[in-house]
Design a binder for these strands. Structure first.
Lengths: 190, 190
DNA sequence: CTCCCAACCGAACGATCGTTAGGATGGTCA
DNA sequence: TGACCATCCTAACGATCGTTCGGTTGGGAG
């Protein structure tokens, strides 16, 4: 692991634990055993460090969606999307935590870039629900906005309770089953 | 509105917008048109100000659950719980935002108190799902932990998208319907 | 051997932080 | 009238912040 990678990892860890404003450059330097002035050989500044972290996060989540085969049924793609999302959260918990929580501390310009990636991600999920409805896999009166919001709520809240080592695929499938089949007693006879 | 209330309101607004560490006592003083030293006639310190805000939040959410009639069916109580939660979020958005996001910046002792209130809230929701399953309103194989987690994900994530003036009752009912009936095409004959 | 350059250092910069001290003001109530 | 008390003030405190500066070090390339 290069110094730069160690720096990025430690920054994500501290940002996740203490928040952006609660993390000082000095504390970050201490964490990797270096004087704080030395960090500026690797980074442009504290803001840029946050921005780079956010970019990593955006890439991780979009990458998970990219890995889903296009030819599958929409509902199956949704199940895999949930699996992929939770896998990113569990596998890169600190990165995911920063991505979800700290974007608001970006300066206006980089914030707009990151928010655009977030919106694109949400739209990709919404498109899957639309596809599922149009192909008859999901109920015809389904509002894809509400459905996507529920899906994304579960996904985006995961960083608060998911822990490394959990069986994320099983958890994702359990969530998926609740979403599509519901909780009502008579909704599934078996 | 007394000075103290104005202070509490403005503190919640700033904590929600800039975060606890991103909000300075000076900025808070500016917001209410006073020198920062003057604030110490009303508060014990910045930490205590955050703590008081969190207490308000906890009270608001528990109060919403308290208002639900005990004798209703569990599923109906769940529907009203979601309504109540979203109503608090929409009606006191800044308070809800701080409650959900800033608890980690509390000192260990007050944090434990607030976290206990959070856990109690989650347990109250979980109990409703358990009751619904045991009374046969919800499927017998329902895992109340997973169900409550999904419910609370939707509830706790609402502060990111809910805005004042929205028809929160309708939104809550839409969420509730998705949760209990599911999204699958054949799950409700129509 | 020399040059270069990434990496790191100690020291200092101006700014801002939360908080305290000590005093002024003005209304309330005995 | 006079004591009090909540409210606000100016000024200052020590601490910490992100960042810059100039200089040192050490290994790889010519």
């Amino acid at each position: 692991m290069t110094r730069r990678e160690e720096l990025a990892r430690e920054a994500a860890r501290l940002f996740a634990e203490k928040g952006y404003h609660g993390t000082s450059i000095g504390a970050l330097a201490d964490a990797i055993g270096v004087q704080k002035a030395s960090l500026y050989a690797h980074i442009a500044g504290k803001q840029d460090l946050l921005f780079q972290t956010m970019r990593q996060g955006a890439e991780a989540f979009h990458g998970a969606l990219d890995a889903i085969p296009e030819e599958l049924p929409a509902t199956e793609k949704l199940r895999l999307a949930l699996r992929g999302h939770l896998r990113v959260v569990a596998g890169q918990l600190e990165l995911a935590t920063v991505f979800v929580q700290e974007w608001k501390y970006l300066e206006p310009e980089p914030r707009e870039e990151i928010l655009a990636e977030r919106r694109r991600y949400e739209e990709r999920v919404r498109a899957l629900f639309r596809e599922g409805r149009e192909h008859g896999e999901l109920r015809s009166d389904l509002d894809e906005g509400t459905a996507a919001l529920l899906f994304l709520s579960a996904a985006n809240w995961a960083f608060t309770w998911l822990r490394e080592g959990a069986d994320t695929d099983r958890l994702a499938d359990a969530f998926y089953a609740l979403l599509v089949d519901g909780m009502r007693g008579y909704s599934t006879p078996g």
